[in-house]
Simulated scan of single mutants.
Amino acid sequence: MKTTVADLKEYTANDIQILEGLEAVRRRPSMYIGDTGIRGLHHLVYEVVDNAIDEAMAGYCDQVSVIVYPDGSVSVEDNGRGIPVDTHPKVNKPAAEVVLTILHAGGKFDNKAYQVSGGLHGVGVSVVNALSTWLELTIWREGMEWHQRYSRGVPQCELTPVGKADRTGTKVHFLPDDTIFEEKDFSFDVLSSRLREIAFLVPGLKIDLKDLRNNKSVAFKYDGGVISFVEYLNRDKNPLFKEPIYIKGEKDDVLVEVALQYNDSFQERVFAFANLIHTVEGGTHVVGFRTALT
């Protein structure tokens, strides 16, 4: 039987939905963090940590602290410059509120504030905010301590100075929304593995991880960079030469670092990173390395 136009369900402009603000993130979270399982849950932490690491790579931060609390919340604190608190001229809101509530708002789209950066540019921390039951923002900047609270991405108060401060930095404390995530328990081992990698890739940066659920803690700080990383990977192997081979070069504003050390096993282990993001599926940088090596 032939279907006619009259048989089709009416489809008009009224059927087109426009999602405002962070509602799109809450409707389709997997588009932004991969999934709503254990991987996506930990991705929230990585996005906030990436912002702190960008400050470290820019030379303004040398310490990051990550704390997992008994209620399932996590805080990430750094001693960087602090998110700007002055009013954004286009939207007439504090810059910090813009960063946490508007997708694609951030300081990483040109090379003015950050020469190199990782994470979801202008998306990461706002996605974390949208997918959290609550988020507490603390900023130390311009001689003051600033505070603001959010609920599922919506500001619950104005960004307000609450006292004087003799330091700079940012602290983001959030509780993942249990109506969105299938998994609610952070893994100390998963977090420590990722934070260890970052510490290797940013020489001199100290990263502390504390889990108040079971009083576990660990601190990472490696001055040797990728050389220390290779030595760590070979710690249980028999290296064929003592010192890892290290190569560093820059061309067209692209900086490349390579460290390698052969051992007596038959298994190849290649870890590749682009702007500190682990590219598990390789890429042109891995292809280029293999071609140059062989």
Rank of each mutant, 00 (worst) to 15 (best):
K2D: 07
T3S: 05
K9Q: 06
Y11V: 11
A13F: 01
N14I: 03
D15W: 01
D15V: 04
L22C: 02
L22A: 08
A24C: 10
V25M: 12
R26G: 11
R26S: 05
D35F: 03
G37L: 08
I38D: 05
V45R: 00
Y46L: 05
E47W: 04
V48K: 00
N51W: 01
A58Y: 13
Y60W: 08
Q63N: 10
Q63D: 05
Q63I: 08
V64E: 05
D71F: 03
V74F: 04
S75M: 11
N79L: 08
G80I: 07
G80C: 09
R81V: 09
R81L: 14
R81M: 13
D86I: 08
H88Y: 07
K90G: 11
V91C: 11
P94S: 04
A95W: 11
E97C: 02
I102R: 15
L103V: 12
H104Y: 09
G106N: 00
G107T: 06
G107I: 01
K108S: 15
D110S: 11
Y114A: 03
Q115P: 05
V116Y: 13
V116G: 06
G124W: 00
S126N: 01
S126P: 11
V128C: 08
N129C: 15
N129I: 03
T133Q: 12
T133W: 12
W134H: 10
L137W: 03
I139Q: 04
W140Y: 15
E145N: 02
R149N: 15
R149M: 15
S151E: 11
G153S: 06
P155D: 12
T160G: 05
A165R: 00
K171Y: 06
D177Y: 00
D177E: 07
D177G: 06
D178C: 06
F181R: 00
E182L: 09
F186C: 09
S192F: 03
R194M: 02
I198M: 10
A199E: 01
V202E: 04
P203S: 09
G204W: 03
K210C: 10
D211S: 07
R213C: 09
S217W: 02
F220V: 07
F220I: 07
Y222E: 02
D223E: 15
F229C: 07
F229G: 10
V230A: 11
V230F: 02
Y232K: 12
L233D: 10
L233Y: 09
K237A: 14
N238M: 07
N238R: 14
L240T: 15
P244Q: 09
P244G: 05
P244F: 14
G249A: 05
L255K: 04
V258S: 11
V258R: 03
D264M: 01
E268R: 14
E268I: 03
A272C: 12
F273W: 01
G282W: 01
H285A: 03
H285G: 06
